[in-house]
Design a binder for these strands. Structure first.
Length: 244
DNA sequence: TCATTAAATTGTT
DNA sequence: AACAATTTAATGA
């Protein structure tokens, strides 16, 4: 149980459908794409399995093809702090890959997932050769910075309904997680783990959000109806413009 | 393909 | 934490 990187074993090459799920692939020129595809590995991860651990040297830049991962870190007292969930279409670890350092977080599968990995050397090669790839990574870093600032706000929110709404908005981020689309596959239990609330309280919050037509609760997932409302949940409504 | 059964998930107390 | 109700997945004819 809890073996190390899932990509060390059970790896294989990707199908066409899986390649389609990789957002930066379409930005590459044919020869760059060829090299990237040849290097990409994919593996299944079972629930609880670690994709990477704090302190291990970086070997891959990772992406979620399908499923749901959890990013966390252990503090000095040995307590685990969860930072965020990573739904399909999300790529992570570029910060550490850039510096060729060791992983700063633990990444664990919350449910059965499919994870893709691009070797760090290829990651650097793409940075050196592809403008489209550079743009993707820069956009990614910028968007995630916004998310982490928002996450600090979320942490200070006491109202569970608002916490759930904002956390959901983060998971529905179309830039960071283009594989999610309209429906996020996540159980209320999994969301409870991510947000740090009980499943009952999450259920209550989701019911409230559904009542506001921000989302619709479905079996095994959530459909977003009003992403803007989720994002701004708990904020003061904008002042009316004095124009017209 | 359909019917039956088991498992997963949700809603409620 | 426990329970019943609902939905999906798995099984086998």
């Amino acid at each position: 149980m809890a073996t190390d990187s899932a990509l060390h074993q059970r790896r294989r090459s990707l199908t066409a459908a899986e390649l389609d799920a990789i957002p930066w692939m379409r930005l590459l020129a044919p020869h760059e794409r060829e090299r990237a595809v040849g290097d990409l590995k994919i593996a299944d991860a079972i629930p609880g399995e670690y994709i990477c651990r704090t302190g291990r040297p970086v070997t891959y830049w990772f992406g979620v093809v399908d499923g749901l991962l959890k990013m966390s870190s252990d503090n000095a007292e040995g307590q685990t702090m969860t930072f965020t969930g990573i739904p399909p279409g999300g790529w992570f670890g570029e910060g550490t890959a850039l510096k060729r350092e060791t992983y700063r977080y633990n990444i664990q599968a919350l449910r059965k997932s499919m994870v893709a990995g691009l070797h760090v050397d290829t990651f650097h090669w793409l940075l050196d050769h592809s403008i489209g790839f550079n743009r993707f990574v820069m956009n990614q870093l910028n968007e995630r910075l916004g998310q982490f600032i928002a996450a600090r706000e979320i942490d200070r929110m006491t109202n569970p309904d608002i916490r759930v709404a904002r956390s959901l908005a983060a998971l529905f981020n179309p830039v960071l997680y283009p594989g999610v689309g309209e429906v996020l596959r996540i159980t209320q239990q999994e969301l409870a783990y991510l947000v740090g609330l009980s499943r009952q309280r999450v259920n209550e919050a989701l019911t409230a959000l559904a009542g506001q037509d921000s989302i619709r609760v479905e079996y095994g997932g959530l459909r977003v109806l009003n992403l803007a409302a989720l994002r701004s949940s708990g904020s003061a409504p904008p002042a009316a413009l004095p124009l017209d």
